[in-house]
Design a protein around this nucleic acid. Structure first.
Length: 275
DNA sequence: AGCGACTCCTGTTTGC
DNA sequence: TGCAAACAGGAGTCGC
């Protein structure tokens, strides 16, 4: 499931292939994903040159002079750059096609999303899409640190894991990285956010940064394959300490990892190492 | 304002 | 073995 590192990996893989290219056509095989696809996407994108591919939270922004296409991968979405001759397969919902050069076939940016939790939206030039308003800081920015978390969390009674996954608090930390960060910082996911000390929030912010940075670096190894039709990488899965390891021995102390649902999310932690 | 519950969807896993 | 029910998951939205 794409979290921030996978979205950033996608952005880095995508950018060199589509930045500077002119869009020839847009094919929508569905009128909607999570939400209806706004008419500007098919109407205004063709003919535009892609100026940049940016990321904010888990959203990708494809910038043109007419406006920006806003892409979210949901939990099962993926983007690939392929030769336009590759046949579409199940759940290939959107193609953004580029003209080929002399003798070379054109390519398409193809959006596949089986569960359709993803979205394709439109941000007019000079505006900020409503979904991007009110988002918290980027976790890898200097705006995000222990003091920030400590100050914001005072009085909050929700579990610290729920707090950390709130996109208004900090963006890009989903279920996997919340579990991993809390394990690394030695904080119980059940603890009320407002009851975590400043020192422990410093450790937590550091853990978030370290884990995300590492995961992005690991994803980077797959960038060269971005043009191939192979499936998405599972680059980080074998390195997970907590996520998906309920009942297994704690990597630190060997006691069985606990599992429960916190805030409607499967959560794994060590009752001994995380307090 | 904060927070829990609900919702979307479909591939995979679990349970009978 | 086969089928159906349960589950997973990002994050917006609703209601208390």
């Amino acid at each position: 499931m794409p979290e921030l590192p996978e979205v950033e990996t996608t952005r880095r893989g995508l950018a060199p292939h589509i930045e500077g290219r002119r869009i020839q056509s847009v094919t929508l095989r569905r009128p909607d994903l999570r939400w209806p696809i706004p008419p500007e996407v098919a109407r205004d994108l063709p003919g535009q040159r892609i100026e940049a591919v940016r990321r904010r939270a888990k959203y990708l922004l494809v910038d043109t002079a007419a406006g920006s296409a806003l892409l979210h991968l949901g939990m099962s979405g993926s983007l690939r750059v392929l030769p336009a001759t590759i046949p579409v397969s199940t759940h290939d919902h959107v193609d953004i096609a580029f003209a080929g050069s002399a003798g070379k076939p054109g390519r398409v940016l193809r959006f596949n999303d089986p569960r359709r939790f993803g979205s394709l939206l439109w941000q007019p030039l000079g505006e900020v899409h409503p979904l991007l308003r009110g988002l918290g800081p980027e976790p890898l920015s200097d705006d995000f640190d222990g003091d920030y978390l400590f100050d914001l969390s005072r009085g909050r009674r929700a579990p610290v894991k729920t707090f950390l996954m709130d996109q208004a608090v900090v963006v890009g930390v989903g279920n996997i990285y919340a579990a991993e960060s809390l394990f690394r910082a030695g904080i119980s996911p059940l603890r009320a956010a407002g009851k975590v000390s400043r020192e422990r929030y410093a450790a937590l912010a550091g853990a978030v940064k370290a884990i995300l940075t590492h995961a992005i670096a690991r994803g980077g190894t797959t960038l060269r394959d971005f043009l191939s039709p192979d499936g998405a990488p599972g680059y980080f899965e074998q390195e997970l300490s907590a996520y998906g390891r309920g009942g297994e021995p704690c990597p630190r102390c060997g006691r069985p990892m606990k599992q429960a649902s916190i805030g409607q999310r499967a959560t794994v932690w060590c009752g001994h190492c995380q307090r």
